[in-house]
Design a protein around this nucleic acid. Structure first.
Lengths: 345, 345
DNA sequence: TTGTAAGCGTTATCAA
DNA sequence: TTGATAACGCTTACAA
């Protein structure tokens, strides 16, 4: 009683072979539904597998075949709404293709990211999907991964400049443009912009879109109303304080994420400013919070599910025909975005 | 030019052995920091590993040693705030212990959950951590996993009744009690309760807490104000409509998650009811949305990070001394919860 | 302290 | 259509 059982030896292909009177090779063929197996044999094997409760050892299979049917994913944090959605979509589609997904979080740390790349490499994932940290400027760990023959697709936060990896990104220039020109259209003339670190393509592009819109409207960009720190609640408050301590105050704010937009809303309330009357605010990402807050926040929708679908599509194409034209894969795919107008404007 | 390179043969322990003039066994010992290796030898090997850019093949290692240093995790969905937090904590601590985490989402589907268990088993994870689906009543796939020798820890959504797995759960009875008695204390007498499917321990327990508090206050529980459907926005509206179409309306609502509480807030606004004056609402989980909505929602904090820590602690203990007393591991660990009072009450 | 050699459970290459 | 056999890259007795 209450004895600790020894781990029962999990059964193998050989046991199935013996039980059916076939060879291990045939069992393996059935398992991989190889074409040259007689229907009757296949049926017999499948039944025996069921009966014995046999479970293929993917470790052994992976070692021999050099295919693990596992994809690694590196993401800053799964708690970010956009990423959670993308991941879920990826995982669901990948599952249909018979692939597993190993999800890793870098926590926006470059060192962690590097470690994770090594770890994934070391478990021999068949491919890697990555959204970089805010501060990744050295892509050599990723290059090394590719050099070892692992297909790599970047999404959302992608390398600035050339890369031989596949790239799927949102249209952040357009997003920045849409947000800004919307404010201009509804009457804003003094527009502030809280952006993120310019190491990151996201903020470079959104800023570019901002400049484009301002230029077209012939509006002046005030450097003292431009910020490039990590987009946290805390940093948002610091930036807002600085803006509103100045001699003049803005009538519009482009926030490059919804966390910042939400912080701005709160700040405005504390300052006694009415939104949208005194200050109009646009966020980015369509985080669920942006919809339920009062007033609800106008924001940029990025269609995470569409992005997830595209990522898998591109990846599967690559995994299936290894010898794809490298010119083709080096052109980034740009996914459309859209402005969702709400009560903050 | 534009030639596709053949995958370079990733290097092996044997190449490191040859390069250093040592045997593969010694290289392996260095890799596993085995005690019996001369310091000088170790240093030499490490340098060569660095020089060759050698990367241990964990697939091969796992096959031989029967240890993958990978833990599998099954969760309904990573987009749920509570789970995202727990997972992040688990992953960070596990990482320090040298373990990888494979995160899988069941999407609250029992079939998917079953498949995932098989998949994890098939990649030979060293252990599994799981929060069940809303509808898991048949735990035999989990039992089978354990029977194959894989340690298993359930958290949050755990089996009702006996299990030989380790169990870490929140104090949902207390949570339900706190929410309800808080409403009573501040004057509510007609309290409705939107709970979840009673297959799930969470809602069984929260309901129990609700009954306890009502009984102590000698208040009547009205069956027509009790709901047990999955806690979605849509179901919340259906329940609320039903409640408010009745002859009498409640002055307090216990919602068993924050999504429901938020939906109730919106519903009340549409009905022209003031919160908290006309209706007081308590949610569950302290989702970030509950804080930013107007009015902010009183809710039950579950301390996901503490739960994550506990999970890893228990798991590591188990992984280290395999022969732990089975009586000990079968007592569930119950984690404290707390009421966070906000403006909705 | 280090080396030799036998597997771990599959799959791939022949041959039958 | 099936079977024998040699890997895959590592760990681990056992020997030295």
């Amino acid at each position: 009683m209450a004895e600790i059982k020894k781990t029962p030896k999990s059964n193998t292909i050989i046991q199935v072979a013996e039980a059916t009177g076939l060879s291990p090779a045939t069992i393996s063929r059935v398992l991989n539904n190889h074409p040259y197996v007689k229907e009757a044999t296949k049926k017999k094997v499948l039944e025996m597998i069921e009966k014995l409760g046999y479970q293929r050892n993917n470790i052994a299979s992976g070692l021999r075949s050099n295919k693990t049917r596992t994809i690694g994913l590196i993401v800053p944090r799964i708690s970010m709404f956009f990423h959670a959605e993308v991941i879920t979509t990826i995982q669901n589609i990948l599952y249909k293709h018979g692939y597993n997904l190993t999800i890793c979080q870098s926590g926006d740390s470059v060192d962690m990211e590097k470690d994770l790349i090594r770890a994934l490499q070391s478990v021999r994932v068949d491919a890697v999907i990555a959204a970089c940290t805010l501060h990744t400027t050295d892509f050599s760990p990723f290059d090394q991964l590719m050099a070892s023959g692992t297909p790599l697709v970047f999404y959302d936060r992608v390398p600035v400049g050339k890369t031989s990896a596949m790239v799927i990104k949102g249209d952040d220039i357009q997003g920045g443009y849409l947000a800004t020109s919307h404010l201009i259209e509804i009457g804003c003339r003094r527009i502030a912009h809280i952006s993120g670190p310019l190491d990151c393509n996201l903020y470079q592009d959104r800023l570019k879109g901002f400049y484009n819109a301002m230029k077209i409207a012939d509006l002046q960009v005030r450097k003292e109303w431009l910020f490039y720190h990590e987009l946290t609640k805390e940093n948002a408050r610091i930036a807002l304080k600085q803006i509103f301590e100045g001699p003049e105050i803005p009538d519009g704010l482009v926030a490059d994420n919804d966390t910042t937009a939400i912080a701005a809303l709160k700040f405005a309330k504390e300052m006694g400013l009415k939104v949208p009357q005194d200050l109009k605010i646009v966020g980015y990402s369509n985080d669920p919070r942006s919809e339920i807050i009062t007033p609800s926040i106008t924001t940029i929708e990025q269609y995470p599910d569409k992005m997830g679908e595209k990522i898998v599509e591109v990846l599967m194409a690559r995994l299936q025909h290894k010898n794809m034209n490298p010119m083709e894969i080096s052109t980034p795919t740009i996914m459309p975005v859209q402005l969702i107008r709400r009560l903050s404007t």
